[in-house]
């Protein structure tokens, strides 16, 4: 069985992955399952398997990525993968995004919020890295989460209807992240 080494939340880890076929017909284990089964990650979750909802979002080399459609053979060796599990486990010292989601009670069932937290983490960090330290407007956050922003065509779904709180939480966190 082939194996892959990645930097998972900053730590080098290696595991085998399953694959069938070769060349153009190669089909291999999905990153989402591999992260959950091999490395006990619980943040990314199976929502649709179609890259249409966002529940499985992780950052691959800082880019928000739908792990439910990424096959392992397409992942670069030593790719940096960041998950919600690696953000902060300490309830006393959460990441600003985690803190604001709790502070503003931006969740109902909470199944989707991995996507909004990890997706906006990559997005806001990307803005800051590009020199843009402004707090995104409400419309900008909505456009990003709706897959209608420059550089993001992926929609994030919340089915419980917690949208207004999620948008507010992301803006609040962005203010702190850009500081």
């Amino acid at each position: 069985m082939p194996f892959r080494t990645i930097l998972l939340n900053g730590k080098e880890v290696t595991a085998e992955y399953q694959a069938i076929g070769s060349g153009a017909s190669e089909s291999s284990e999905i990153l989402l399952y591999w992260l959950r089964e091999q490395f006990g990650q619980h943040g990314p979750r199976f929502g649709c398997g179609l890259a249409q909802c966002g529940a499985c979002t992780v950052l691959v080399d800082d880019v928000p990525t739908r792990s439910c459609v990424v096959q392992l053979h397409t992942v670069e060796d030593l790719a940096e993968v960041r998950t919600l599990d690696g953000l902060s486990h300490d309830e006393k010292d959460p990441h600003p995004l985690q803190r604001e989601f709790v502070e503003l009670q931006a969740g109902q069932c909470g199944f989707c919020i991995n996507g909004m937290i990890m997706g906006s983490l990559g997005w806001i960090e990307g803005r800051i890295a590009g020199g843009d330290r402004s707090v995104p407007s409400e419309d900008e956050v909505k456009a990003f989460l709706s897959g209608a922003a420059p550089g993001n065509t992926r929609n994030y779904i919340c089915r419980c209807g917690t949208h207004t709180r999620i948008v507010a939480a992301i803006r609040s966190a962005a203010e702190e992240m850009a500081r």
Partner: peptide, 12 residues
């Protein structure tokens, strides 16, 4: 339940 849901320690 929300803190644990926001930091991936909640178990669905």
């Amino acid at each position: 339940d929300l803190p644990a849901k926001a930091n991936a320690t909640f178990r669905f």
